[in-house]
């Protein structure tokens, strides 16, 4: 395990694009955290009177208890950057044929996939760590309540973020392993996660009245629900839903299994 991790580390340690993209991710995530509060404050101060009346005190998005879900949701846009990192790191191995040489040198295909899964797990953990640090900083800056019971009350969102990002990146890995060409894999991955699945599920939902929550991207992407509508006094499910978690885990397992089967059966 450690050897496989060290191997992946040797590959990314000097890869400039990797570090640039990772830096971009951390920067964007931090900025949106810092920026959203100011944006709301700005709207309250300078916005239309109705808005002002509605949001007398601004949205409490960085108050403890809520903050974890809000931060997790706000940053989820940037997980595509992590997805690109994963796709590029895998497709490069195919286009440079280094995966072939790795296998010749004595790595198994299973170990190769494991090294990429370790990269994915590390990126997911990094995402969680980032939310934790931002949450603590922003929370103590803005939250009226800071007693520890509140601070950690909904900390369950951190492991949920881990599962969500991990699953999302496993889907990216599947696209990379199946398609193998960087550009093509990137575009198709974007298309699928942003449009294709939405169109398909819309059809099934509106035309055929099917339940749609079990489609793969939706299943892994839906662990953290859109939180902001609760400020318009709508019901937002919070916390852990075991059925949703189980479904997400099922898909994550499938992504890994299919990736392995494809890689194992293919001539490199």
């Amino acid at each position: 395990m450690l050897r496989i991790f060290a191997l992946e580390w040797l590959k990314i340690k000097y890869a400039k694009p990797f570090w640039i993209m990772l830096g971009l991710f951390v920067l964007c995530y931090s900025l949106i955290g810092l920026f959203s509060k100011s944006a709301i404050d700005f709207l309250v101060a300078k916005g239309p009177p109705s808005f002002k009346a509605f949001l007398q005190t601004g949205l409490p998005i960085f108050d403890f208890v809520d903050i974890w879900q809000n931060l997790a949701y706000l940053g989820s846009l940037f997980k595509w950057i992590l997805g690109f990192i994963v796709i590029i790191s895998i497709t490069n191995e195919f286009s440079n044929r280094t995966v072939r040489q790795n296998i010749i040198d004595g790595l198994s295909k299973y170990e190769f996939l494991k090294s990429k899964l370790l990269l994915i797990a590390t990126l997911s953990a990094l995402n969680v760590l980032l939310i934790f640090v931002l949450g603590i900083v922003l929370g103590y800056m803005y939250s009226p309540v800071t007693s520890l019971t509140y601070v950690f009350q909904e900390i369950i969102y951190l492991p949920l973020v881990f599962v969500e990002i991990f699953g999302f990146l496993c889907l990216a890995m599947l696209f990379a392993v199946v398609i193998r060409r960087s550009g093509f894999a990137l575009v198709l991955f974007m298309m699928y996660t942003l449009f294709i699945e939405n169109f398909v599920t819309a059809y099934f939902y509106y035309q055929l009245d099917w339940p749609i929550w079990y489609f793969p991207f939706r299943a892994v992407n839906n662990l953290i629900h859109f939180p902001l509508s609760k400020y318009a006094l709508q019901y937002v499910p919070t916390g852990l839903n075991l059925v949703e978690l189980g479904l997400a885990l099922f898909w994550i397992g499938s992504f890994m299994l299919i990736s392995y089967r494809v890689l194992d059966r293919r001539d490199l």
Binding site: R97, R100, I103, I104, D105, G106, S108
Partner: peptide, 15 residues
């Protein structure tokens, strides 16, 4: 596969 660790091999171009 682990037996290949005792084999040094280059196929076609250097990769």
């Amino acid at each position: 596969y682990a037996l290949r660790k005792k084999i040094g091999a280059i196929l076609e171009q250097p990769i």
